[in-house]
């Protein structure tokens, strides 16, 4: 095993570059990844614990940090299930039936990916803000959306909107409708067919979508930043709390909170790898 390091994965003669070229490629690839990926990750953890474990603990259990954590979990707990239901409905309609205008709808579902985070926040300000379309009416009825939790939830739903649907649509299209038709012919109801045939077939794709959707929902910064108003202890999510602390030069606390999010990212990567492995190996 060890002597194979740096050798080409395929051993056929005449195709592979000499060892020295492989070595150069490896050094460049690893150097690039180290500089741009590993170093930032290390710095987050190092700065977070630079003043000791107790200060780290104090930073993440501080009142405002805890409230930011609660808000982040709440936002994800709403955005993910809502987009999950949408993703299932959309993929059922778009992947299992043939009708006119389908590709247009698929393009529209991808739209939020093309909109930058700040603009994603902006459109909700234009809709619900004080000077927006519904602003005056909302103010009259004493409903606050912008600079409040509903705005944050809406902006998060928008930016995470396509994740699950775009994972499921190609998967379900590829699987076709034969199995569903077989189930129906054997006397299953529509709901039973979906639950016992369709759902088991797409479970790993579904998991994949949920993991990515959740990571983005908890980590979104730009869109949420526009609609939040940055009220400490009330409308700050964890990423916003990081910004506030950093701008106050409270680096230890900023990185302590950031380390929670970095932990979330690492968990996401591990789960993602597991799901990818499961998909590949049944």
């Amino acid at each position: 095993m060890f002597i194979n390091i740096l050798k080409s994965t395929d051993k056929r003669p005449g195709l592979n570059p000499p060892l020295i070229v492989n070595m150069a490629i490896t050094v460049i690839a690893l150097g690039f990844l180290f500089m741009f990926v590993i170093m930032p990750l290390i710095i987050v953890l190092k700065e977070a614990f630079s003043a000791g474990l107790s200060l780290w603990w104090a930073s993440i259990t501080e009142k405002d940090a805890l409230s930011a954590l609660r808000l982040t979990l709440l936002v994800a707990a709403i955005a993910v299930p809502v987009n999950l239901v949408f993703g299932l409905a959309a993929s059922w309609a778009l992947a299992k039936f043939r009708f006119k205008g389908k590709s247009l709808i698929i393009t529209l579902i991808d739209l939020p990916f093309a909109v930058s985070p700040v603009v994603s926040g902006l459109i909700y300000v234009l809709l619900f803000g004080l000077h927006g379309w519904l602003g005056p009416w909302l103010a009259q009825h004493d409903i606050q959306i912008i600079f409040a939790v509903p705005g944050i939830v809406l902006a998060t739903i928008f930016v995470t909107f396509p994740f699950i649907a775009r994972e499921l649509i190609p998967l379900m299209s590829e699987q076709g409708t034969d199995e569903e038709q077989a189930a129906l012919s054997l006397g299953a109801s529509g709901w039973q067919t979906f639950r016992r045939v369709t759902l088991p077939n797409i479970k790993w794709g579904l998991m994949y979508g949920i993991i990515l959707c959740n990571a983005r929902a908890m980590g979104e910064f730009g869109a949420v930043s526009v609609v939040s108003g940055h009220i400490r202890g009330e409308t700050n999510t964890l990423p916003l709390q990081v910004e506030v602390l950093y701008n106050e030069y409270n680096f230890v606390a900023a990185f302590a909170v950031a380390s929670l999010l970095a932990g979330l990212a690492l968990v996401t990567l591990v789960l993602k790898s597991i799901v990818e492995w499961k998909t590949k190996h049944g």
């Binding site: 990750l41 710095i43 990515l212 980590g219 990081v242 680096f251």
Partner: peptide, 21 residues
């Protein structure tokens, strides 16, 4: 797996990490 870190790491976190670095 680590290649996907920039996708998974919240942008605010990568922002302060890069600034600090």
């Amino acid at each position: 797996a680590i290649v996907d870190l920039p996708f998974a790491l919240p942008t605010a976190v990568s922002g302060i990490a890069l600034a600090m670095l």
